[in-house]
Design a protein around this nucleic acid. Sequence first.
DNA 1: GAGTCTTATGACTTGAGGTCAGATATGAGT
DNA 2: ACTCATATCTGACCTCAAGTCATAAGACTC
Lengths: 225, 225
Amino acid sequence: MSGIGSSLVSPPRYRSRPPRPRSEGKRTRIVDAAMRHFAEQGYHAARVGDIAAVLGIAKGSIFQHFGSKDGLFFEVYKKAVRSFPRYLDAPVEVRERGFFEVLHYWLVRTEHLLHEDWIPYRVSLLGNYGTDLTLKREINRFLMAEDPYGTVAFVRYGVQRGELLAEMDQEMMVSILDWTMERFQDALLTEELDPGLFRRQGDPQEKKDARITQFLDVLKRAIGA
Amino acid sequence: MSGIGSSLVSPPRYRSRPPRPRSEGKRTRIVDAAMRHFAEQGYHAARVGDIAAVLGIAKGSIFQHFGSKDGLFFEVYKKAVRSFPRYLDAPVEVRERGFFEVLHYWLVRTEHLLHEDWIPYRVSLLGNYGTDLTLKREINRFLMAEDPYGTVAFVRYGVQRGELLAEMDQEMMVSILDWTMERFQDALLTEELDPGLFRRQGDPQEKKDARITQFLDVLKRAIGA
DNA sequence: GAGTCTTATGACTTGAGGTCAGATATGAGT
DNA sequence: ACTCATATCTGACCTCAAGTCATAAGACTC
């Protein structure tokens, strides 16, 4: 844990310009193996040496490519988050039914996506709550810069359709949506990934559905037109 | 970072029953020094050895008392959070003006409290976002068990006064309040403690007040009667 | 003041992140 | 093919902080 912010982002010095294809491929393989490892072990328990061993390469190699454990995790986190769908990626017929139908679609859907591949979800959980404030700052910068879930566009969409309050500050609505959706999904997901991490223990399916509906009602009242 | 959950909570084995007064006093002194140190350095950069050095005691002593760095931090975190006021600690005249006036009171007030003593706020930030999922789980258990801000009682108060929706699940309202208040306060506070940690950079005071009003409006719509 | 329990000490062990000089591969130019 | 420059890989090595533990010191009881 270096703590030097800059070393997090800037890759090794000799990377003067062109990332050779061989290098690019190896980076990808490292990130994939690391993603799995972080997801399984958690940030602290994960060992860079173990990741190298799994890949059959030298530990030093990983540090050449990513500079530090932080740096490696940051790449892993970005890849994980980028693999998630954006709000407006919902099917057209869902989108046509409106803003809150899209939200409903994704809330229900998240659970299925989780079962298909829980690894990136665990990584995003780690990035959001389980690393270090220094890293968290990088992560927040990334989330603000990329808006990976497309929340901004989604809110604009809701306003254009007249489903969201036109007179409310859009940035406020984006924040509210980000905050509550993240927490609500964490609460749903961690029942399976990390029992006890957030409120409540596993509920039966019908209660989950009821909670989703209830949660959407709250949101509708909060920012709906 | 042991990762063994139990070692986190259960202090050293020989603590069969009665915590002698001498021991209790020393624990307190260690926790206070550690709180300052964690707040200043962050979780990872903080060194148990440094804390011991400041106190002029042996590092081993700290481990005797708290078992691990995690264990020490957990105590520090609990103390920090317990030092915060509960919602219903607001002055009577504010309480009489109603649920949302109490919220407003604390949102404005938080900034002042922060300036008086930023240390526990930073520690709570560390506990919420900057340590480890294992520790985070303990922390969430603690928050659920103790409800240190008195959110449950506060929501009940709002319902009794007829200011909150009687027909909505109270636990849902508690969650919504916890989630959004925490994040909103983080956003306000970290502008000063950790610029760039959350959305937006420092705004002028009048914009902050406007945001508070706006945020309260959202909450009123969301869960208000 | 002997005996017993509690607490403090600091040298020691462990182990993971990180470094770097040298070995090795790659690819272009001739 | 051969050379040479550049990119990449390696693994022994270093650093440093968490955590351990045998021993010493203190405190309390009778």
